[in-house]
Amino acid sequence: MPKHSGEQMLQEKYNTSKRAAAFYNNQMLDCLNPTMKEFISNQEMVFISTSDRHGHCDSSFRAGSPGFVRVVNNSTVMYPEYRGNGVMASMGNITENPHIGLMFIDFFESRVGLHVNGKAYICENKELDTLNLPKEDILDIEIKEGKRAERWVVIEVEEAFIHCSKHIPLLEKKDKSKKVQSTGGDFFKVKQSKIDSKMKS
């Protein structure tokens, strides 16, 4: 059953309680089953959502080689934090509010999504042994990640459920080596917008 009173209130208001109950009973788990674990291990991307202590939200995107999000066990997953823009928005939120939502979507084959919600914390590389990972997993991390993973975000799973394929597009992978027009790190011309704003003021 839902943990959020808002869900229950709107289910009653819009008369969807019966459908929702069927979903909770048939589609939602409080851990990962083998099919979910295999699905995660095949994904190259995940969308993440976090918020700070005041509820101000942030969404972000993480990507890597297939299986970069690692399944530790039925109730724990972890993903690497690579070098980025240095803002630390998502991890900053996690230090204030551990609740996190992960959204895996297979755009290329099944067109199915998997929601994984839970509580997160930051784990430094030197602390990985606290997760009691098998030696072969530690070795695999060292081989595949090298020094790219600056640290890890570990998620204790509380909810896992499907996102149906109805409106998920089927995409085709393209060769990333082909050159495309780019304006570097300021694609949206923010710097110029700030200059223009100062000139107008």
Rank of each mutant, 00 (worst) to 15 (best):
K3T: 08
H4L: 15
S5M: 11
Q8T: 13
M9H: 14
L10T: 13
E12N: 14
E12Q: 15
K13D: 03
K13R: 12
A21Q: 12
A21W: 00
A22H: 12
A22W: 04
Q27G: 04
C31A: 13
F39H: 02
S51Q: 14
S51D: 09
R53G: 07
H54M: 09
G55I: 00
S59F: 02
F61W: 04
R62L: 08
R62E: 07
G67C: 04
G67R: 02
V69R: 02
V69A: 08
N74W: 00
V77F: 06
M78E: 09
Y79F: 15
E81S: 12
E81I: 14
Y82M: 07
R83H: 12
G86M: 10
V87I: 06
M88S: 02
M88Q: 05
A89D: 08
S90L: 05
G92Q: 06
E96H: 05
N97R: 11
G101A: 15
L102S: 02
L102W: 01
M103G: 02
I105L: 08
D106Q: 04
F108C: 02
F108M: 00
E109N: 14
S110D: 01
V112G: 00
V116I: 12
N117T: 02
N117P: 02
G118A: 04
G118V: 00
G118P: 01
C123P: 00
L128K: 03
N132E: 11
N132K: 03
K135T: 07
E136T: 13
I138G: 08
D140N: 15
I141D: 10
E142F: 09
E142A: 15
G146N: 05
G146T: 03
G146P: 06
G146S: 11
R148Q: 15
E150F: 09
R151A: 09
V153F: 05
V154E: 10
E156Y: 10
V157W: 09
E159W: 08
F161S: 13
H163N: 15
K166V: 10
K166Y: 01
I168T: 09
K176F: 10
K176P: 14
S177W: 00
K178A: 05
K179V: 12
T183Y: 10
G184E: 13
V190F: 09
K191G: 04
S193V: 04
D196Y: 04
S197T: 11
K198W: 08
K200H: 13
S201Y: 07
